[in-house]
Design a protein around this nucleic acid. Structure first.
Lengths: 347, 347
DNA sequence: CTGTTAGCGCCTTCAT
DNA sequence: ATGAAGGCGCTAACAG
């Protein structure tokens, strides 16, 4: 049995001949430009439909070919996951170059609203699109809206700014990610009763806040045997996280699970190891890095809730390029899945 | 702080001028074609390097532009996952058409080696590349080798044929998938002791055999409390699977987990539900479908080991197109991850 | 061994 | 409202 998808047969010129008009007119109809009598437009559309005509992308690209400039705004500092994002974007430079496009990476203190919004504003008129790891704050939202209003394309990355006029968000559904972490801890803790510690970077980060929300929701509804302690905030830093975690372990003898919402996982892990509680505590963290990979293999971490930085980087650049070229965004393909990584499906 | 990736500045012609040669010579060097004196080649390469020159893809594509034909060989029958693969490939027809390419889907009895290899042989000279869901059998391997030798590109899909000359395999690591299923069942069964049932389609299918291997390995080494029963084979059919599963449940009162390696999950699920053992048995199956999605939500299935059919379809077509155009395959980007899907990270 | 040149299919002024 | 024609950058056939 066979299903065929024949090659679209002809070119603009064939369609033009078929419809009894010139190529320029076909082009106008194809791009919905004005200046075509409704009647001729119809004839053209019919010819297009009859042959299932699709303009050859390569030719269109070549004919347009203008240099395009993008920017990536990402946090300074040693957050490994953010480094991976930056590296992955850098690795796209070849891909972009062969399309007459380029990215410029701007590192900034993302935790500081005025600094971040100034970095955004500084791009006005200098680039065609920006991908930004953003804090969800009034002034940041305003800056994004400004840029969008000026005709620039804005994509939020990893953490969203929902109220804003950003054109697209590239990242996981963080509420669902929190729920996922909760059900992992719930199911891996064997119906024992006890307390669950939550370590976050800052609840001002929308992704962190959303994860905590989803986490509490599922534990609260489905695991009455478990109690979620109030989240502690360590600013995504190892040293602070280690102190906070050590105190938690000392204060809560019946702690049976830990959820680290943000970065700084090595600090949390160290405190757990130093307390000699590795095997007794179910530990779920985010994002696969060289550290979390080793910790999974050693059994310190039980599961990682992951988002693929390579995929996010590619998606961001692909979406920006598509927006600039007025191509439709394939939402299905651009959705970033929440990945559960345990020892045996380590990629 | 800023990192810049400037747009590659110029065109073939600029490089030619810079190197004091003609565009044709630059083109030759760029594509490693013969007929260039080593010395001039060096000068060209230097100019290319100096400007970090990248040829504009769109122009190259346009200049080459030949119609390309692909085929997909997939199983007949009502296997939902295979339907999804077919649908996803069909949905790429627009993407392909705008690149002067097309796919033809050929349905065949993949379980039958002679039929499958004949279907493969029939493509000889008719298409430029084929993606095939293959049985790992002597005659199939021979057919693949024949096609490859004739200059056709062959990609195996979902299930690999390792000994053959196929150019690429698009699909998950099935041994790792089996290990993943095992550690899910092991960890979700709360250290209880008991038996684990395994239902497969056929051990002649390489993917099924590999999954079983990985599964037994992990349960054997890491969960001494669990015993894996001999796999039963239901040919991926619901009705047969249901019977087999019902018998298993009747015969094994201490059955605490079930791993369904292939399709026909509804049959297995029905037997478990009818026996009233939904809550007591840890059930892990493969591939997210409308059925497994509902079963996850209802709690009948505890976890699904998934591979994304859309991603596989796109990867297969992208790789084939790349092979035909002699572009390098980005192995990193084309790797298909093993996804763990539980209720809370349902996409 | 190297250079010249005519396209590839579409977009975009500029005329009409 | 419509058409004619010159590019866009690269490839490949043909000349030298």
């Amino acid at each position: 049995m066979r299903t065929e998808t024949p090659t679209s047969p002809r070119t603009l010129e064939d369609i033009a001949r078929e419809a009894g008009v010139s190529v320029a007119t076909v082009d106008r109809v194809l791009h919905g430009r004005s200046g075509v009598r409704p009647d001729t437009a119809r004839r053209v559309r019919e010819a297009v439909a009859r042959y299932d005509f699709r303009p050859l992308r390569a030719a269109a690209e070549l004919a347009r070919a203008k240099a395009i400039r993008f920017a990536l705004i990402a946090p300074t500092g040693d957050n490994i996951f953010m480094q991976m994002i930056r590296d992955q974007v850098d690795e796209l430079s070849g891909w972009l170059a062969s399309r007459r496009a380029s990215v410029e990476t701007i590192l900034t203190d993302v935790f500081n609203p005025p600094v971040l919004s100034e970095a955004l504003e500084s791009l006005m008129g200098r680039v065609d699109g920006v991908a930004v790891v953003a804090l969800d704050h009034q002034s940041v939202r305003a800056a994004i809206d400004d840029l969008a209003a000026s005709g620039m394309f804005v994509v939020t990355l990893v953490s969203d700014v929902p109220g804003s006029r950003r054109h697209h968000y590239v990242g996981i559904d963080n509420v669902a990610a929190g729920r996922t972490a909760a059900s992992l801890i719930g199911r891996l803790s064997h119906a024992r009763a006890g307390k669950i510690g939550v370590v976050a970077g800052s609840q001002l980060l929308r992704d962190h806040a959303e994860r905590i929300f989803g986490f509490q929701q599922v534990i609260g509804f489905e695991y009455p045997n478990l109690t979620v302690l109030a989240p502690v905030e360590g600013g995504d830093r190892d040293s602070l996280n280690e102190d906070l975690m050590a105190r938690l372990l000392a204060d809560q003898p019946d702690l049976i699970g830990v959820y680290n919402v943000g970065a700084g996982t090595p600090g949390v892990a160290k405190a757990i190891s130093d307390a000699g509680r590795e095997r007794q505590i179910v530990f779920v963290a985010h994002d696969l890095t060289s550290f979390t990979r080793r910790a999974l293999l050693r059994g310190v971490i039980d599961a990682v809730v992951h988002q693929d930085p390579g995929r996010e980087a590619r998606s961001a650049m692909r979406v920006l390029l598509g927006l600039v070229r007025h191509e439709p965004v394939l939402t299905e393909q651009e959705k970033i899945p929440i990945e559960i990584v345990m020892r045996d499906n380590l990629p």
